[in-house]
Amino acid sequence: MKKIFRLGESEHRCSLRQDADGLVLDTEDGPLRCALQPLGAARYCVSAGEEQAEALIARHDDRIWIRLRGRTHVIEAVDPLDAAAAGGHDGAAEAPMPGTVISVLVEPGAEVTAGQDLVVMESMKLEVTIRAPHDGRIAAVHCAPGDQVPLKFTLVTFEAAP
């Protein structure tokens, strides 16, 4: 099974296999013998190649939270198919945080320029204006004032560039 792990800005294509000696993670930098031993209460002993460390690990859906050596890391596991499918979009404005839509400043069909205000959102103490990521014509508005929207919710979509 192949997966793409997003770690910050970088993407790592990985797959896992089992041989007689245990698990091998094939990464873009070559194979990595690895093991994960549960120590109870979210603690694990993780080893990869020559490295070994104790870590706290929590998973939620496709997000893996790892506390390792005094730092917190969030890894997003992406199915290659989802990644490929996601490439097909023609740009959209997404909610940068979960919260409430305060106002919608555009209508479908409107021509907007990059940076133009589209939607105003609020999430406790913070008002955020979502701006057009690029020039284009609005295809659809997927939210209305008062809507509660989750993180990365597609607020506004654009028509495909000619």
């Binding site: 792990f5 990464t27 080893s47 990869a48 390792l68």
Partner: peptide, 8 residues
């Protein structure tokens, strides 16, 4: 490497 191993 450790992070990818932990994730996988």
């Amino acid at each position: 490497a450790l992070l990818l191993a932990a994730a996988a």
